[in-house]
Design a binder for these strands. Sequence first.
DNA 1: CGTAGAACTTGACGTTACGTCAAGGTCAAG
DNA 2: CTTGACCTTGACGTAACGTCAAGTTCTACG
Lengths: 252, 252
Amino acid sequence: MDWSIQEIAKLAGTTSRTLRHYDDIGLLAPTRVAGNGYRHYDERALVRLQRILLLRELGLGLPAIAEVLEGDADEARALGAHLGWLRQEQGRLARQIASVEKTITALEGGERLMADEMFDGFDHTVHQAEVEQRWGAEAYAAGDRWWRGLGEAGQREWKARTAELSRDWIAAAGSGLAPDGAEAQALAKRHVEWLTGVPGTPAAVPGGDVAGYVLGLGEMYVADPRFGANYGGQAGAEFVRDALRSYAEREL
Amino acid sequence: MDWSIQEIAKLAGTTSRTLRHYDDIGLLAPTRVAGNGYRHYDERALVRLQRILLLRELGLGLPAIAEVLEGDADEARALGAHLGWLRQEQGRLARQIASVEKTITALEGGERLMADEMFDGFDHTVHQAEVEQRWGAEAYAAGDRWWRGLGEAGQREWKARTAELSRDWIAAAGSGLAPDGAEAQALAKRHVEWLTGVPGTPAAVPGGDVAGYVLGLGEMYVADPRFGANYGGQAGAEFVRDALRSYAEREL
DNA sequence: CGTAGAACTTGACGTTACGTCAAGGTCAAG
DNA sequence: CTTGACCTTGACGTAACGTCAAGTTCTACG
């Protein structure tokens, strides 16, 4: 009913500094300020805070969030406008990626590719520097150790499992099944279980945001051509995405 | 041989403030500082500045650019690492987009869609707020005026032309043609010419960066499922992208 | 009751790459 | 000498807090 700043921060999964900031900018004032200056919050404040954090996770700016919460702006309209900016950003990134790829290709004919074993089920047509940047150098090293630790037989098994999953996805996508049908959903389940074996993914971390991760993973398979290539081209990636989305919404 | 700060700024297409900033952080010192404090640059400085701006357009940070220019870092490695971060960002965006779409769908069953005519060849399964955010409200209005100005017959013609282009792309992608073959390249040429008719694109603006835009446009067709849908699904989008890339590199 | 440690407070700087005034010197032309 | 055009340094603002720093208050313990 009456929480201190740290208590409500933990309840909502944020920090006390953030709460002070929201107080400063007038986004969320404490319910009550005691004589000693300590901030206190009640459950109404908690609800408001949770809405703020939800919208923030969607990428909205604090001023936009304030407008929505004050009723000055329609939530759906604000999100729709935000969606436009998100897609615009994605386009800008796609443009930069194309240019950077072109530049790298021009600089060197594609040397220094990743170590020839794949590290987590992708292909090896990628630069090691890129991998290290993407997952961090220690993550790469950890994944490398994990991979080596599997041993010869384990690596064969892992590759087989990965390839099998990939084959089954391609087959399912090609046979006109519904992404939310039983067979595709079984595949999605297998996919998520497979992810649990990949170090560094939220699915491998207890308490990780599996649903959100899986939800976005499908979008990434569609967005990044190299991922989609493992699922029978972009057409297959679309199928995988739809199946994963359906699965995530139902089961996770 | 010896330019003032404004002169070199115009030559390189940037501002004097930027040059002062690069001087401040030690990225690009003027060749000579006159007794009155005025900065002067020679052609070696111009070359360095142009390399800086090139790398900056690829999205590298100024510290990373400095390392590359000082020879402390391999350019290809730096770009490869940067590519990893770019893809990571794209994934994050894809995740957010998925979440925002889900939230909007949950909020309202998909009402307030865009006006039923399409404004630039896409479909109308998109919110108006999104369009306005993406291209700006005036751009939307301008496009709207342009569209209305076409008149009944003009709109029919435009739609036919758009649909024809789309059909031809789908047919070409489906018939196993090579993206860099003559037929696909002819399509790419038509595509770029078609873009010239769309207000707001660099292709419609004299002096716009057509090559870069077209290069990235293909990536966007692949990245954004709704674009790809106009080209026979993501598989078709891949083909369009490859054809456009080939065309842009050869002709633009 | 004194005190250590935990929790709280209000500043204030750092982060990215400059844009944008502000206040004031310098230079060429008339 | 005056009027602009061009130059200088200095400093604030940007998004959303993280991270000290210095000082105050609460709680538990001997």
